[in-house]
Every structure is written in C-alpha cells, then in structure tokens.
Computed example of a mutant assay.
Amino acid sequence: MGQYKGLYVEARIHADLDDLWIRTQDPGQHQRWDLRFSEIDYLARVEGEPQRFRYATRVLPGLTIAGTGVSAGEKERPDGTRTSALRFSSPHPLSLLAEGSGYWRYVPDGEGVRFLTGYDYRPRWGVFGAVADRCVFRPLMGWATAWSFDRLRLWLEQGISPERARLNWLVELFVRSLTLMATGAGLVAESVLPAFGPLAVLMAFCWPLLLTVAFFTALCAPPLPCTPAARRCLRRPPSRARAPRLLRTLEMPR
C-alpha cells in the first residue's frame, strides 16, 4: 500500500472512544460540527453493500451543492484502533470537487484519542480548476477540516455545543476586527495630538506603543480556550500517511 497523498489533519481529543465514534459516525451529529457540510443523510442500505449517503453544502443563500458517497467502518480492530473510509462524488456543475476519497482513523493513546483524517479529490474545470484548487480551494478545505476537528474537540472535552462554538468564534473574530479598525483610526487620531498641549509630549510617546500592542494583540494573540481554531490541529503527518485497506473495498458512487 503506497503513501497516501492529499490533505491531512489530526486532533488529539481527550474523550471516550465510543463517544467520539458516535459524534463522527452519526450523520445528524456529524453535520453539526463539520463546517464542510450543511446536510448529511444516510440512504436506504442494501444488504451486503456499503452504506450510501447524500451530502450537501450551502455555498450561498439559495445555492446548495450536493453529492453522494459510500462509506464503511471497522469498529473492532485487533490493535484497538478504529477506521472508516469513504468515496464521494458530486455531479453538480458548480462543484469544483468532482470526486474523491478519504479515511478517518481513531487511535487511542492512553490520554485520549488521536483522531486523524486523510483525503484527496479530483477538481473539475480543467486548468482553471486546478489553479483555483491549488491557490484557494485546497487551503480553504484544509483550514475548514482543522477548524471543524477543533470544534468537535471542544464539544467532547468541554461540552461546548458546535453552535455555541461557532458563535464564540464569530464574536472573537468581530472583536479582533474591531480592534484592528480602531488601531487604524488611532493612527489618524495621532495627527491631533498637538491639541492636547502639555500632554502632547507624553501622549506622543505612549500612543504609538499602545497602538502597536493593540495591533499585535488582535492579530497574533492565541484564540480563547472556548473558541475553535485550526492552528490547534496537526496539518502534516508525523510519519508517512497510508490509506487503510478498507478504502480499497469501496467503489466510486455513480
């Protein structure tokens, strides 16, 4: 089995393996924390065949891109780990993603679970699609996956619901943006310092320092513990990542 190439994300989650399995394998719970999907529904299962599912992503109000996939899981493995694999495709002409495949691994390590994913896909739209994918879409997908994994971690470790975690993120993003805007306004206000008379010298010394501190705090301060952040996840495999054998058993959905 060769090295698996594509996107990789790993999160260390201090939670029970069964709880993590349910939050990721149940479609209703999965769609709550995964930013990449708006809807995930299992289709009627045929005996002896992999589970088929339908997924949808709301790109803009009134515009939803849907696709189908097949998945299979190994809940009991001799080494104590668990694995699930899937193949997916979207016939929607506006979907940059044509088809792809991926896997999840659940690796207990004594302090929790290493929850990791590897996946890749084929973009459509020819050369334009390849360039758009490399420059914009693929980095965005990697970020969205890592952000979602950390939102899942907060749900399991701290009991912060995915909806609350998203609100925390939006509020923190708003505050940081407001601080950066205030910093820019402060640079403009610096021109009126002479109007403060004797205090002008003191303020002229302190003002740039305060603006600098505010700017770098808003830009570089770590996210709050209750806010999901992609930076908390590992984005490169610690060793050569390999797709599970289970993935070979799945055929691309048609």
Score class of each variant (00 low, 15 high):
G6C: 04
V9F: 07
E10Q: 14
A11S: 13
R12S: 12
R12T: 13
I13H: 06
I13T: 05
H14N: 15
L17K: 13
L17D: 11
L17C: 12
W21A: 10
I22A: 10
R23E: 15
T24M: 13
D26V: 15
D26H: 15
D26T: 15
Q31A: 12
D34C: 07
L35P: 05
L35I: 13
R36D: 11
S38N: 12
E39Q: 12
D41M: 07
L43S: 07
A44G: 06
Q51K: 00
Y55W: 15
Y55R: 00
T57V: 12
R58A: 08
P61E: 10
T64D: 06
T64W: 06
I65M: 03
I65E: 06
G67W: 05
G67V: 11
G69H: 06
G80S: 09
T81S: 10
T81P: 04
R82W: 04
R82P: 01
T83L: 10
L86S: 06
S89F: 03
S89A: 08
S89M: 08
P91L: 00
S95C: 01
L96R: 03
L97Y: 11
A98K: 05
A98W: 04
E99Q: 06
E99R: 00
G100S: 01
Y106G: 01
Y106W: 04
D109A: 00
G110I: 02
E111G: 00
V113I: 14
R114A: 03
R114L: 07
L116H: 11
T117Q: 12
T117V: 11
D120A: 10
R124M: 02
W125N: 09
G126N: 13
R134K: 14
F137Q: 12
G142V: 14
A144M: 13
F149K: 07
D150R: 06
D150Q: 10
D150C: 08
R153P: 01
Q158K: 14
E163N: 09
E163V: 06
R166Q: 11
R166T: 12
W169F: 02
E172L: 04
F174Q: 09
F174V: 09
V175M: 07
S177M: 09
G186Y: 00
S191P: 00
P194Y: 05
A195E: 02
G197V: 06
G197C: 00
P198S: 01
A200V: 00
V201R: 10
L202E: 03
A204V: 01
F205W: 14
A214F: 03
F215V: 05
T217I: 13
T217L: 10
A218L: 08
L219S: 06
P222C: 04
P223Y: 12
P237S: 04
P238S: 03
R240T: 10
R242I: 08
R242W: 10
R242Q: 11
A243V: 13
P244D: 13
L247M: 09
T249Q: 08
E251C: 02
E251N: 07
P253C: 02
